[in-house]
Nucleic acid binder design. Structure first.
Ligand SMILES: [Zn+2]
Ligand SMILES: [Zn+2]
Ligand SMILES: [Zn+2]
Ligand SMILES: [Zn+2]
Lengths: 521, 521
DNA sequence: TTTGGTCATAGTTCAGT
DNA sequence: ACTGAACTATGACCAAA
């Protein structure tokens, strides 16, 4: 320490300012200001690695190693210490050609965090930089995806269940049998001979002797398992005196009542939420529902042959379609604004979420009006069904849309359930849709609405949870497709195609399990 | 968060900011409209580079990365995708500069056409004359040069209007003459197959014609759905002023808190129950678990060939088996007595229930020690596995037992889950096991324990509810078999066979339509 | 106001040790 | 396992239109 500071003093006093090309850490040739300090390439890279990936290191020479271009490799601890004492830091690094404003930090006394002893703790912790990322030049082989920060955890579990299943932590410490199961036997049981168990195995043999002597040895008469069990039950249970019936009932009641009250209260909450959805529908989609129901009923009754003819020109239809998209979006926004709890999301997240969910909501809204691969919806004054969809859109894409709508249809949802499902889907807590501070809340909302859906869904005989789960998964795929394809579609001209020229392919629907690093969110 | 400040501004001004200075791509601070989109310097430069010099890139995180100022550097593919879906395009619409021309010339071999069309290709095929050749990796030609579709205008005039001009929506102010100002009327064939003569003026004139034809709504300005959605969202959501972050948090809290309190209370109940099970295990099965785990681990590690040899005589084994049955029964009774709520059953029902569940519990207790069709359990001092089972018992019956244990195994249960499952099964409310006055209570207990099981089961990724349901059904079958067959087995002599002479057959497992409350699953 | 260009600095790679 | 020269990517700033 004294050594270093002397050197610093001399340099700064005798050659006060520039030392234009010297690394403040090792005195080598500097290539500019890195991490706030005039430094060389080596010290720059070393500092980054030291902060991001090295573990602890310690000086073995007393902590006062001189750092020069020749010696800087000899003691990592002292080199890092020097970096820190010169003011290097990863935080607040400006990307791009920012002003080197941070230089003032190096002035005056060494910054607060500089360790005085030479045991530098190289934590793997890092600020916003994220794990070291590899970018690939075109066509390079696959890159490894670097370790994911601990924050980004479970992805799909919450698809399966509602609040009651996910809210709260795991209840108990798992002592999984998996170690045994997976057939890697050797490292499993370390506590082989810890016979300090409360109940050691000898008791078995003890009992064995007793019972063998008492019950079974002498009589050779057949003894069924049933008889044996009865005897043991009698013996065992008689030891514990049982309460009277009245006492039992009291016990039962106290055990059940509060829990049942909880369940009742929960059901009331869920029903409130369902009512909220019903009201939201009445405020928004109701007109559409009536129109389309009527239209479908009429079309189906008039004419068994369901292939409907086009009733306008492409250009007119495109204009109408654009308008209907606007209308649908407005309805979706309005619908979600009526959902209890939704308004507590930030406006920006609302916008992000609903933009991302447009396609899925569009499909859910229309699913009830699909019959025999035809869609009976009306936009403007025109029937917008398979004919126009196939005319305007990629046919594989259209097939996917119908597949999804038919999947939804197989659920046989009631009207309320259908829009409850829409709410659930609009609230799926995908990381890329959540504000950083809203993830927990959205997870709550999602599972709450899912609870509500499951609640009314399960009261019906047809409740098909597997299919429901499948639909939720498909919705995620549609969301992915929306981002990658649908939102790039140019709806202003006749073959509606994406502006980036990447045509539809099923791979666009793939939902990978990967989560992008969310460390600093 | 920048958003908060915006919200605050909003609160004070009472008038929604028309377009906050936010980058449409990354939500950072915008510096104006670049390439047709309100964007920041970074996204502007990125887009330019991405189009002109980068090769293709691909997302390694699933293709739905969130793009924020902090995260935008992590995934080029998603950033570019977002740029495109927001409508960014390189073309000559805002040709304001000659520098680029100079640059093109300096590069040599520039297509000499008008500067605005130099990169204008709508197809996924890239123009062979890539304008800027850089040091991009060798042989990565395929980057389609994106161009703004003809007719796209830029700047604020478009932003002010709803996208798609919101045909039929009176609240939007049309600016039908905006394009007249810019474009020279020009009769070009309507561009379903957009010819590459994408001069700005021509496209605008086309659009004008369309406007005139279609009752002056919906100018055909090519826009992606993504842009459209953004604009509507902005318009719709801006009408409803959002609360401050603090207000939102308060709202969230009030919405969540009582419900979460319910959940917490419920989880506490479940947790209590699970703890009860864990304690019950510690009091009863713990010694067995340790012994058998150790035995299995040792057996598997010593010897890949798992066929274990008999280590005693049949007569000895039968005696030992009898003793172990006694022991198992005692353990089962003791285990269930520790289960919260179980003691409130009448002694008679306890006995009836546990007698009936003996076989199922026996199997559940041993399922974790089954590997490759071998059972690694120890009774007395002897291994009791497939060899002895098949020697003593009906081989079809043995096969059934192994089938069930392997089904249980497939659930990959933790230790606690395994015995929680045992509790659930012991509490199945079959009518023939219940006292008349206890049916409701048993149903409650059953669903309570099932809740607890589902709860911890669902927190694990492997939660396989279908398999769980299947196991519960199989358990009922085993119960039926126990009554009809197992309890009649005479364990006192060597081939263990039923005293009534009715040999095992699968029909004995049939469960009458007993209407078990499995709908809870 | 928007454009292309600049360039200091950040991040990444890979042969060398 | 670490190092660092060389390379690529980023974006604030700028001058020009
Ligand atoms: Zn240096
Ligand atoms: Zn040192
Ligand atoms: Zn941006
Ligand atoms: Zn990505």
């Amino acid at each position: 320490m004294p050594e270093d500071s002397n050197v610093d003093m001399e340099e700064t006093t005798l050659w006060p300012l520039p030392t234009p090309n010297l690394c403040k850490v090792c005195n080598g040739t500097s290539t500019g200001v890195h991490y706030g300090v005039q430094s060389c390439e080596g010290c720059k890279a070393f500092f980054k690695r030291a902060i991001c990936q090295y573990g602890q290191s310690k000086c073995y020479f007393g902590g006062t190693c001189l750092i020069t271009p020749e010696t800087r490799g000899r003691c990592k601890a002292c080199r890092l210490q020097k970096c820190l004492s010169e003011g290097m830091a990863l935080d607040g690094t400006k990307v791009g050609r920012g002003r080197g404003l941070r230089n003032f930090r190096a002035q005056g006394s060494t910054p607060s965090g500089s360790p005085s002893s030479s045991t530098s703790v190289m934590t793997p912790f890092h600020s916003s930089a994220g794990p070291i990322r590899t970018t690939s030049p075109a066509g390079s082989p696959a890159k490894s995806i670097i370790s994911r920060p601990p924050g980004a955890d479970q992805g799909h579990d919450f698809i399966e269940r509602g609040c009651f299943a996910t809210a709260g932590k795991p209840l108990i410490i798992m002592q999984p049998f998996e170690h045994l199961r997976r057939g890697i036997p050797h490292n499993v049981i370390v506590n082989v001979n810890n016979s300090n168990t409360t109940r050691d195995s000898s008791c078995i043999s003890v009992k064995e002797d007793e019972d063998a002597v008492n019950d079974r040895e002498a009589p050779k008469s057949p003894q069924t398992l049933g008889v044996c069990l009865d005897k043991i039950m009698e013996r065992e249970l008689i030891v514990h005196r049982n309460a009277t019936a009245a006492q039992r009932n009291a016990g039962r009641f106290s055990f059940m009542s509060s829990y049942l009250a909880l369940l009742a209260e929960r059901n009331k909450r869920l029903e409130d939420t369902v009512s909220g959805v019903t009201e939201a529908v009445a405020f928004t989609y109701r007109g559409q529902i009536e129109d389309w129901s009527h239209f479908m009923a009429r079309s189906l009754s008039e004419n068994d042959d369901i292939v409907l003819k086009p009733d306008t020109t492409i250009d007119n239809l495109i204009v109408t379609l654009q308008a209907s998209i606007v209308n649908d979006t407005e309805l979706l926004v309005e619908f979600c604004r009526h959902l209890p709890g939704f308004s507590e999301l930030s406006r920006r997240e609302q916008a992000r979420r609903l933009s991302a969910k447009f396609t899925t909501a569009w499909l859910l809204n229309r699913a009830p009006y699909v019959r025999n691969r035809e869609l009976f919806s009306v936009i403007g004054k025109h029937h917008y069904g398979r004919y126009w969809m196939e005319t305007l859109l990629d046919s594989q894409f259209v097939r996917l849309l119908f597949d999804f709508m038919e999947s939804v249809n197989e659920l046989n949802l009631s009207l309320t359930e259908n829009y409850l499902l829409m709410a659930v889907i609009c609230l799926q807590p995908s990381p890329h849709l959540c504000d950083p501070d809203s993830i927990q809340y959205v997870k709550f909302l999602y599972s709450h609405y899912l609870d509500a859906l499951m609640h009314i869904f399960s009261t019906r005989h047809s409740g098909n949870f597997i299919q429901l789960r499948s639909v939720l998964m498909q919705a995620l795929a549609i969301d992915a497709l929306h981002l990658r394809y649908v939102s790039l579609l140019d709806f202003s001209r006749s073959p509606i195609r994406p502006v980036n020229g990447i045509e539809y392919s099923p791979t666009l629907c793939e939902v990978k399990d990967d989560r992008q690093p969310l460390s600093d969110l």
